Computed example of a mutant assay.
Amino acid sequence: MARRTDAAAGTPATVALTRAGIAFRALSYEHDPRAAAYGLEAAEKLGLDPDRVFKTLLASVDGALAVGIVPVAMQLDLKALAQALGGKRAEMADPALAERKTGYVVGGISPIGQKALLPTVLDESAILAETIYISGGRRGLDLELAPDDLIAVTGGRYAPIARKR
């Protein structure tokens, strides 16, 4: 997989990956503003297996922000996220707060290149894939990379944090 640094993919996420020397591939698609589920839209428009396309969600774990990354066809198990981070209680973060703290807009929040490094947990199902797809930092842009590289660049960890809808 070649590194891509073209202007169309120039986001804080792609800049961070390039600086870290991590191989990735940027995939763009025409985002439909009426789409209800951004991750499922990406999987459909890019012709990808939804089990390999992951969404980035922000939650408050015992009052501190954290990132949970789960397959787009699944839900974030808040209790499992709290447990993975050694906390007791988790709830979804307010979307406006998520945007302020990450520097990204909802539907385009990447786990990479956020304003501050937040505790990050990637669902363990990612281990099964050679590469996965995550938001590239804007709606209509996904990045393909190895899950271990995502863990390395975010300082994250694997845990079983996804559940069926």
Score class of each variant (00 low, 15 high):
P119I: 10
P50F: 01
L78E: 04
A146Q: 00
K79I: 03
A82V: 14
S28D: 12
G21A: 12
V67T: 10
K101L: 07
Y158T: 00
K55T: 09
A43R: 09
T18E: 15
A43H: 08
T14L: 08
R4P: 00
P160S: 05
G107P: 04
V106I: 15
A98C: 09
P119Y: 02
G68K: 08
A90Y: 03
L128P: 03
V67K: 05
R52S: 07
A35G: 10
I112Q: 12
K88E: 05
Y158K: 04
R3V: 13
R89A: 07
T5R: 12
S60K: 08
D32L: 02
E91D: 10
A126T: 07
A59H: 07
V105H: 11
A66E: 01
D123P: 01
A116M: 07
A162N: 07
G103E: 09
V61K: 14
E44R: 12
E41T: 13
S125P: 05
V105L: 14
Y104T: 05
Q83L: 07
S28E: 15
G10S: 14
I134R: 04
Q75H: 09
G21Y: 11
L65P: 15
R19H: 10
L78N: 05
L150K: 07
G39E: 08
D51V: 00
A126E: 10
M92T: 05
V70M: 02
